[in-house]
């Protein structure tokens, strides 16, 4: 690989890490707060019959959670709004929605491989920072 290629190999993960960091910082600002929504492939009646499991339950007191049936028999849409003054971040909500969906659908939340075989280097530090919060970022 060319020197330019190697340089870009460093730059791309750094940029990805920076983007995640910026996103996480912005998560605390009210202007970025929109509803976070997932669709869970379980019927609304089932979800209403018992408290929601997992981390969503833990943030329920500081958020507004609503549910409605998804069209086309796709299950139930769960929407979470973070009210003004809440201590819950967008990342907390994304993680909670993903983990709760997995619990409801698969009965479990997949853990990463382990023990790790990798080493921390200057090159992969930004990537490791991003993946440590893998369920908190993204577009959900």
């Amino acid at each position: 690989m060319s020197r330019t290629g190697k340089a870009l190999l460093i730059v791309v993960p750094l940029a990805a890490g920076a983007a995640v960091a910026v996103k996480r910082r912005r998560a605390g600002t009210p202007v970025s707060r929109r509803n976070h929504v997932v669709t869970v492939y379980r019927p609304l009646s089932e979800l209403e019959s018992a408290p929601l499991p997992g981390t969503l339950k833990e943030i329920a007191d500081e958020t507004e959670i609503s549910m409605r049936p998804a069209p086309g028999d796709r299950g139930t849409e769960i929407a979470v709004h973070i009210p003004e003054g809440s201590n819950v971040s967008d990342g907390d909500v994304r993680r909670a929605l993903r983990e709760t969906r997995s619990l409801l659908e698969a009965g479990d939340v997949l853990l990463p491989s382990g023990p790790p075989a990798t080493e921390t280097t200057a090159l992969n530090r930004p990537l490791q920072a991003a993946t440590r919060h893998g369920r908190e970022g993204g577009l959900l």
């Binding site: 997995s102 698969a106 009965g107 997949l110 990463p112 993204g138």
Partner: peptide, 26 residues
Amino acid sequence: GNCWYCDQKLYSLCDNGNTNPVITET
């Protein structure tokens, strides 16, 4: 094997099989 995608037999699109969705989602 239990999400909507798996139910449609679109297994590589599974909602619950990737512990680190941040990179590909972005």
